[in-house]
Amino acid sequence: MASYIAKRFLTSIPTFVGVITLVFLVMRLIPGDPAILILGDSATAESVAALRAQMGLDQPILLQYWNYLVGVVSGDFGISIRTSRPVFSEVARLLPYTATLAVAGIAVGALLGITAGVIAALRRNSALDIVVSGIATVGVAMPVFTIGIILLVAFSYNLGWFPSIGAGDANSFSDRMRHLALPAIALGISSMSIIARMTRSSVLEILGLDYVRTARSKGLPARSITLKHVLKPSMIPVVTIIGLSFGRLMSGTVITETLFVRPGLGRLLIDSIYARDYPQVEATVAFFAVSFIVINLLVDLAYAALDPRIQYS
């Protein structure tokens, strides 16, 4: 097991190098000049040049790339152009916000999705299946921001049950939860459908397997069949989807954090792209890449835990 993990980490190194190189190149290819953005449209040519020099952007691109790689290796991505803060400490500061949102979003999505999927599969092609699948699919049929706006208008602007902006008072758990509720539900609804669909088809698949048929024919009560034989193996595709939709989830957090004015990595990234804050974008994307690699590893390990037939060596 340990050697498997070590091997996975080694093979991840090229992916990581690829990601950080790609993001460096892409940021330099993007039109737009951080100096002009900071100084505004009324700036004179001289002041733009002065600021560029101050930010080291007048250096040859290969030298910039070299400095960047040296920085990455030593764990120092530099100082943000937009906020003048060490970029990695910003990522570290905002990570808990996004992680909380993502976990809460997945929890809501999994809860709704698995329930809907199992019901739909057990009552396949019945009216219930159609209704449940339909409701579950509406989530995927609406952009996250539409779901978010509906929730905001209904539960914040009109009913006043939940706040509309921010992450809440850091010292008050209940206040943070109140701020988390709507964004997490928006995210959960949008990931629920995909989980529901995967659950439905994997439950169907398993219901068709011999040992379940046997169990059924032996007259075991439906409920115990469902739980014992169906639900646990069905978790495998659900876990896969959580791994696979990590990127989707991150896209979702970008939108929900923007709409609900929540601090977080998604908004950090968007704001930094707008400002052409190269170091901050690079560090944030590198962080996403590492998370992706780690999450996929965890997903593979979860397979092993859920399905005894799979073993890594």
Partner: peptide, 24 residues
């Protein structure tokens, strides 16, 4: 264009007509 791209397109004179707000 998104404001950052617009800014550099204007700075590089890449236009026939352009809008601009100058505040000061």
């Amino acid at each position: 264009l998104e404001h950052g791209t617009y800014g550099s397109e204007r700075a590089n004179s890449n236009y026939d007509m352009v809008v601009l707000t100058v505040t000061g």
